[in-house]
Amino acid sequence: MTGGRITLAHGSGGRAMGELVRELFLEVFDDPELRRLDDLARLEPAAGGRLGFTTDCHVITPPIFPGGDIGRLAVCGTVNDLAVGGAEPQALSCGFVLEEGLELALLERIVRSMKAAAREAGVRIVAGDTKVVRRGEADRIYITTAGVGWIAAGTALGPERIRPGDRLLVSGPVGDHGAAVLDARGELSMEVGLDSDCRPLASLARALLAACGPGLRAMRDPTRGGLTAVLNEFARHCGCRLEVEEEAVPVREAVRGVCELLGLDPFDLPCEGVLLAVVDPAQAGQALEVLRSHPDGAHAQLIGEAGRAGEPEVVVRTPYGGQRLLDQPLGDPLPRIC
C-alpha cells in the first residue's frame, strides 16, 4: 500500500475503493465482523446491565504529533468516553473523510496506529466507512468513531451523585495534549519536547470502579476545555461548590512554560489520557492508591473536594490564602486540538 495518494476513485465505490478497503482496513483492523463486509456488525450483548453508546469526531491538525496521531486519538477519545461512564468498551466503528491527494503512506500509518490503540484498549473495530472529498474541501483526514460498551448492572456513575465532602482526584498531570499539539504545529518556535498523553483509560477506570464501587461518584476525561470545563460541568450538575487547591494539581514544567509564554491557563488545556474522579471521602485514600499503583495513574493526586451545596461554582485556592473563581473558558482558544 506504500507510495501513491488518495484519489477521488478511492471513495467511488468502485475497484480502487475495494482495494483500499481490502488491502488496508480489513488487513490492519483484522476483525471477523469487518471481514464480512456487511452493512452492519452484529454483537452479542452481555447478560444484564445496559448499553453505553457514544461518538466523537476528530479533526486535529497536525495529524501526527508527539505522543500520538489522529488515529490513536480517534480510538482513545471514544474508548475513554465509554470508560469514564462506567462502560466496558467493546466495539468501535470508524468513518474516514479523506482529502484527495492524501499520501497513502500517511493513511496507512494512521490506520495501523488505530489498530495498536484498539489492541491496548481491548476493543474491536467492527464497522467503517470512507468518503473522499476534493482537494481543498477538507484538511487531509478527519475521523469519526462511535463506540459501544457494556455497563454492568448496579454501576451508576454521574455528577448528580456528587455530595458535599466528596474528594476530587486527577490521574496525572494536566494539559500535556494541548501543549504538545500547539508545540507540534510549529507556530510557537519553541520545541519544548512534550508528548501528548493520548492513551486509553479503560483499564484505569475499571480498576478504580472495582476498588470503590458505589463510592466512585463520577469520572470524566478532561478533553476540550480541560479541567476547567469538566469541573464547571460537575458543579452545575451536582449543585455543589467545588474547591481545588492550585498547588495540588499536577502540571508538567514544560506545560507551565508554554502557558506562561502564551498567557494560557494549564487548567483550560485538553488532556487525552487523564481522568478526573470524584469519590466518597472515606475511599479517597484507597482510590489514590489504586490510581498510583496503575501504570497510567502513577502521578495521580488528590486535588480538592466538593463544598457546600447550593453554590454551583468552581473555586481555586491559591497558595497565598487567596482564591479565585475558575470560570468556563470563552470559546476555544485552541481550535482543532482533538
Partner: peptide, 9 residues
Amino acid sequence: IFRFGLHQT
C-alpha cells in the same frame, strides 16, 4: 492580582 488572589491576602 486577581489570578493569585493577592487582593484577598
